[in-house]
Design a protein around this nucleic acid. Structure first.
Lengths: 342, 342
DNA sequence: AGTTATTTCGCAATCGTTTCCGTATTTTAA
DNA sequence: TTAAAATACGGAAACGATTGCGAAATAACT
């Protein structure tokens, strides 16, 4: 089905051997310029396309990179992938993309499938359920190129790209305090996640630095279902110990908060000031009131992941991906949701 | 690097021939139950993973489906892909995903790359620049399984999945008219696009049915850059012949409209009522005022695309994808942006 | 002129599967 | 009892590319 001419047929047409044609197409020094030209023009004429599987089989590489992430409906992850694609596309690499839907079992299944070499490398952000990382450790121990972004595994000695989670969260929380907040809530996904750990730490330290003591009831761990999250946040906002400020460690919980607020008569920013890690800038400005955001350099993170991998995969004898965590800073944009004067 | 045991090594370990082992693993009738068990358990013990490229080369199929779409940062396309992945994943298929960024040249490049068989089929939604469809026609003529969704090519005789663009647009426009609008604007991307043609037709017919005559200055064709779109829409809203209602044929133009409105003192819905094709329900409810939407069955469209393809690819002798256009209806949800009483 | 380099190309092995044959052994049928 | 058929497995070709090695033809050198 559909497959056009192959190397042998092309060679027959040219009255040359397949090896010569292959070398000519790969611009080998062993072939005269004259025959190279003949070969190339005939290849174009017949629209010859090398079979990628034959090549992969022989060369033991696929020119494919796999991206594994927890969800697709997220401007952060979409932008990261746009960044990855931007550089991989220039180098002729293809992208296999998998969403785990925050499900470890699915993540394990995908990772194990990927161990057979279908992709040359994996770029990944772990699911919020992931605590057992044996599937990832195994992959890495086998020498499989693996790099993390955003939601990383600290224990696996490879390169990780993150934003300055701790500092951004610290600064964001400090901003709320400066705006007069004293009872600041913190919304997070699973506590297993690297990003919640760091962002939570930044939040706590900012409270401490201001002489405020953290209130356990103001720190809520959310789940995957939006409806439940909205309800949990509403309960928080209506509780006896209601917060006057709120830090959301991920985008979707900020949206859930706006939904929750809509169901009460709480006013933002008068009664409650909100700041969130957030990547969808267009929407941040459209919320009412507009949302103060900690904007992660999503596209840039994707680009850096890809650049490093491309270097590792294309240069002849590259060392392993170094065990380092590279941080690209976020940018805080203050909007109406945290302004004293609204 | 990374690759474990292969079939020959596994066979040697079992003192069997590779052919026997292959057959045993593929549950061939020619192999006794006894040896099958031995083989399977040894394969598990050694964690044998068949090389996908060897298999693809031999079988001439990749267990991979390519998805080509105009942009990634869109809840519609994200949901479609989630739908596709949901069913392909169950059948052990992998997804190569490409974004054309609304660029025909890039689309052509991708499609031509895909002709070498790297994927068993292509699911695609064309770019807004795509008027010359020769690259797609060629693909299809070669017998390559190709199906369209949303932004389709009518001239290519294969299966297309869309929503009821005409009817939804008609109903949406009629809704505006019923709410008292008399000068209704229409926002669209390129007029080449199947979806704008249909939605535009629905809009025009609804006007006609109500005895209203269309005003050319109220029909604006937008581009790719958000800033420019916002400016163009602002000019529309401030023009002499300003509209009192607006139909946006795609999600991002509705967001641009909200941005544009923010820069004026126009009030929604008092001065301007808005309805839009829109997939991000969570956001629709969060806009101020909340947005009346025509919600496309994005996830469902993805599922149906994938189901059809899987059937075509996995059953032995399937006919070609029939030349038909399957429509899955959208649902209109009325929110504050079109309500008379706000 | 004779020997050595250099250029240019072909042969055949290889990557890891699957599968078409062939064959030895056992079972069934006549 | 013998021929036919079923069972269970191995050998080798094939998929389509790349590449080590060898070899012919030409060029360069002594």
């Amino acid at each position: 089905m559909s497959t056009g001419v192959n190397l042998k047929e092309l060679a027959a047409e040219l009255k040359l051997s397949p090896s010569t044609v292959s070398r000519a197409l790969n611009d080998s020094y062993e072939i005269s310029e004259e025959t190279k030209k003949k070969v190339v023009s005939m290849a174009e004429k017949l629209n010859y396309q090398p079979n990628p599987f034959a090549r992969s089989l022989r060369e033991n590489k696929s020119k494919t990179i796999a991206v594994v992430m927890p969800e697709r409906m997220s401007s952060f992850f979409s932008k990261v992938i746009d960044g990855i694609e931007e550089v991989t596309h220039q180098h002729g690499y293809h992208l296999l993309i998998y969403s785990t839907h925050e499900d470890v079992e699915r993540e394990k299944k995908i990772v194990n499938l990927l161990m057979n070499g279908r992709a040359d490398a994996i770029v990944m952000s772990v699911s919020s359920q992931t605590s057992d990382i044996s599937h990832l450790a195994r992959l890495h121990e086998r020498g499989f190129p693996l790099i993390f972004f955003d939601r990383i595994c600290d224990n696996i000695p490879t390169t990780k790209f993150i934003t300055n989670d701790y500092e951004s969260s610290f600064e964001g929380t400090r901003h709320l305090i400066q705006q007069g907040c004293r009872k600041i809530a913190f919304l997070m996904l699973s506590k297993e996640l690297s990003i919640t750990k760091e962002r939570y730490r930044g939040y706590l330290d900012a409270l401490k630095a201001a002489g405020l003591s953290p209130t356990p009831s103001l720190q809520v761990t959310c789940a995957h279902e939006e409806e439940k999250n909205i309800e949990a946040i509403r309960n928080l906002l209506l509780s006896e110990d209601r917060p006057d400020g709120l830090v959301s460690s991920v985008e979707k919980l900020a949206l859930a908060t706006y939904h929750a607020v809509k169901k009460t008569d709480i006013k933002i920013p008068e009664d409650l000031k909100i700041i969130s890690f957030f990547s969808n800038l267009s929407i941040a400005g459209l919320l009412t009131p507009s949302l103060t955001t900690i904007t992660q350099p999503a596209f840039n993170i994707g680009e850096e992941c890809a650049k490093l991998l491309i270097k590792k995969l294309t240069k002849p004898r590259q060392p392993d991906l170094p065990n380092q965590t590279i941080s690209i800073p976020s940018k805080i944009t203050i909007r109406a949701s945290t302004l004293v004067e609204y």
